[in-house]
């Protein structure tokens, strides 16, 4: 698709926003997310963007947070749980959600062994295994891994590119810290009050119980702080790029996703209009322009061959609409 349609309307430039012709992720925001409906090409664009950033000399890590990974297929290489160097300045990983859940359960079990009576450990183990098999655990574990990784960028890496799951999953993932914060605050407050009242009873009228440090409360506080930090970073340091195809149904869903993401407080970078055919539906292109023009639009034309592997990925150069 030729870039002969004039400069995109500007007007909402902020720190880290790519200029009209600038590459996605090259600005100041170190966390770059790709979102959108399933099958629109998020993984391919994440891989291509990461490669382009690495080629510019930015140390870049690209990870997939979709439990059904396909990032390795896009890069035509085998990826694992730990980041692996796949090109100059480029690292990639497909985090293993089940392994992350197992690690977390092991950590909780080890902490319990150190703090609680031995005779209850078999029961503890059973309850933990039961909880670990519950719904949403793998997804939460991936979210947890993402939080860990975010804390290493900038630092170990200059840019983190995240190949996200479909829109619903992305929204949920981005909402999670906010969703959890009041929960943990509630739990912490309950626990604080209970401990306070106990201490008060013991202290005021000379009871026997000595105030003890509360390891559980400390742990809950630490997790809450960690999630708050992550939520702050997602709002301040991340740009979400929604990927869409020039089709009415995809546009409608992207529109909803954009609204919800913006409402949640996330910064939306330019959208990527992917797989644009030689003669696209002009009405849809016009609708995309009027809806997303102020954020910037990048176009990728439809190709005959599937763009996998570094060579072909480098040829994807999103152009301003």
């Amino acid at each position: 698709m030729a870039a002969d349609t004039g400069p995109p309307p500007g007007g909402t430039a902020r720190r880290g926003d790519p200029g009209p012709g600038e590459e996605i992720g090259a600005g100041g925001r170190p966390l770059v997310f790709f979102g959108g409906k399933g099958g629109v090409g998020k993984t391919t664009l994440a891989a291509a963007t990461a490669l382009a950033l690495a080629d510019r000399g930015l140390r870049t890590l690209v990870i997939s947070t979709d439990p059904a990974h396909s990032l390795g297929d896009a890069l035509e290489t085998r990826l694992g749980d730990a980041p692996r160097r796949v090109a100059e300045n480029l690292w990639a990983a497909e985090p293993d959600a089940d392994a992350a859940v197992r690690r977390r359960v092991k950590q909780v079990t080890d902490d319990a062994y150190a703090a609680l009576p031995r005779e209850i450990m078999p029961a503890v183990q059973r309850h933990l295994d039961h909880a670990a098999a519950g719904p949403g655990m793998a997804e939460s574990a991936l979210n947890d891994l993402l939080v860990d990784t975010m804390e290493r960028v900038p630092g170990e890496w200059d840019r983190l590119v995240v190949d996200s799951a479909p829109t619903g999953h992305l929204l949920k993932m981005l909402h999670m810290p906010a969703l959890l914060t009041p929960w943990l605050q509630g739990l912490a407050r309950q626990r604080e009050k209970a401990v306070d009242a106990d201490r008060f009873a013991a202290g005021m009228v000379g009871g026997s119980a000595e105030p003890e440090p509360d390891p559980l409360l400390e742990k809950l506080r630490a997790r809450r702080q960690r999630l708050e930090r992550a939520a702050r970073r997602l709002r301040e340091d991340a740009a979400v790029h929604l990927v869409l195809l020039p089709r009415r149904m995809v546009l409608a869903e992207t529109d909803r996703a954009a609204e919800e993401l913006a409402e949640a407080g996330f910064h939306l970078g330019p959208v990527v209009l992917n797989q644009v055919p030689e003669s696209p539906d002009a009405a849809v292109v016009e609708a995309v322009r009027s809806r997303f023009g102020d954020r910037g639009i990048r176009c990728c034309r439809l190709r005959d061959e599937e763009p996998t592997g570094a060579e072909r990925l480098r040829r994807i150069a999103p152009e301003p609409l």
Binding site: V101, D111, L128, A131, M137, N143, D144, L179, L184
Partner: peptide
């Protein structure tokens, strides 16, 4: 919040 509150179980 189940994942975050696993610490509570023991």
């Amino acid at each position: 919040a189940a994942y975050e509150t696993l610490d509570l179980i023991p």
